[in-house]
Design a binder for these strands. Structure first.
Lengths: 243, 243
DNA sequence: CAGTGGTCTAGACCACGAA
DNA sequence: TCGTGGTCTAGACCACTGT
């Protein structure tokens, strides 16, 4: 298997530092002639490295050694009942807002009737040029209807939650469902990862005292750059445990 | 992109049930001529479906529609502070126990000195012949030293936790760290999944009131067959929220 | 052995990105 | 525009599985 041999050689070059992080690899045509293989075979080798998270491919620009990225920590703390991501140096967060009406799928997820007006917030965070996280938050407009939050350092939509609180919505309960799965084609493209790289997918439902769903969030986080941390303290001992 | 079109069509056939679970797909040559593409293009389409977990490939035997497996729910409930998996019909759990001494890595994880005697419990659950979950629990023997738990319906080692409580160990705090990643070769073999299928990896640390780590657990769960659910209630409203 | 999937070539052509 | 990666063909040959 020539493509494995080539992948092994390039992996060695990357891990030994001879090809530096962020650096562009030689053009595929160049590598193909160096290794005396044809285009498809060389590309197969690069696919292996991309699947391992060592290489990023950009159509028209080149193939790059993937930079080690800061770990994004998604914290789930029972004591504080808060959700935050550790602020990361160089992290930029972009927010877009759009208004839509609930279709079949959304009406089921949010437990509202079809056609219910919703607001969708999409958060995409970057470290430099590389995407780092993707968050989609749906809020029924009859629950709250505020504008685009200031682009903040919260890549996972915490400021929408803060906005809900500020308009008097009381969140009583939050349910988070976490799965590991391959990204959809769209997610892989948005996050700039290979379709074979796992993502940590988190679906978060926030319910108010009346049992109404006030926020439904869909987080897609690159598996190898994300850690979800959950801390629970046994109720009776919570005071002693914090010393 | 012809391979995507083909993948979409085959996905539709699988999801609609026209191609049944476990059934062999037509030979690649047959499919290639049906879709009027060549071998590499058809195989590319199958790669997509394999990455999505819809198809399993076996060299020399054929390509098969992957059988759906029961979902394992890993529940993290702040109110109850308990961890359990929903009992699954046909689920069988095997437990093995072994004694060892902490090496470099384990001494760091468990915050004990090298050479500290430990007990390792390995839980492997099956549904029929197919492996379903893998749990490795380490307990320092100076914390507790009980025998092999009765093989139970708890595939994730909950009975070790129960055993700790029964000998008077008070767990004050539990930290769980969840990541999505590809399996190691060993894990892929044990769980019977492809190396490209993501797993949900959970590292759970239980600490007692004195800050001593009393249990360190390493769970490896197949991503597309596991869902970790976390429920939190905002403290002040916990009574009202339960009605 | 026959049937199946796995790898590779040589080359054409398309699509994207930066200058 | 030009250099880059992305897709596809037509066909050869290899490797695994079961009879």
């Amino acid at each position: 298997m020539r493509y494995q041999v080539i992948a092994d050689d390039l992996r060695r070059l990357i891990e030994s530092g001879e090809l530096e992080a962020g650096q562009r690899l030689p053009a595929e045509a160049e590598l193909a002639s160096k290794y005396m293989v044809t285009n498809p075979t060389l590309r197969r080798a690069l696919d292996v490295l991309q699947a391992e998270g060592l290489v990023e491919k950009y159509h028209g620009r080149g193939n790059f050694v993937r930079k080690p990225m800061p770990l994004l920590t998604y914290s789930i703390d029972a004591a504080a009942a808060c959700h935050m991501a550790r602020s990361t140096p160089g992290l930029q967060v972009g927010v877009t807002m759009s208004r839509l009406e609930a279709d079949e799928a959304l009406s089921a997820l949010l437990q509202v009737e079809r056609g219910t007006p919703l607001t969708l917030y999409v958060y995409i965070s970057h470290v430099g040029a590389a995407p780092h996280s993707l968050a989609r938050l749906y809020v029924p407009r009859d629950v709250a209807d505020f504008g685009v939050p200031r682009s903040s350092s919260a890549p996972l939509g915490d400021d929408v939650r803060a906005g809900l609180t500020s308009v008097g919505v009381r969140v009583a309960s939050t349910v988070e469902r976490l799965t590991a799965r391959p990204p959809t084609a769209e997610e892989a493209h948005t996050l700039g990862i290979a379709a074979s790289r796992p993502v940590l997918s988190i679906q978060r439902t926030a319910t108010d005292i009346a049992g109404r769903i006030v926020e439904w969030t869909f987080l897609t986080l690159p598996g190898d750059r994300t850690e979800a941390v959950f801390t629970s303290r046994t109720a009776k001992n919570s005071l002693e445990a914090t010393r």
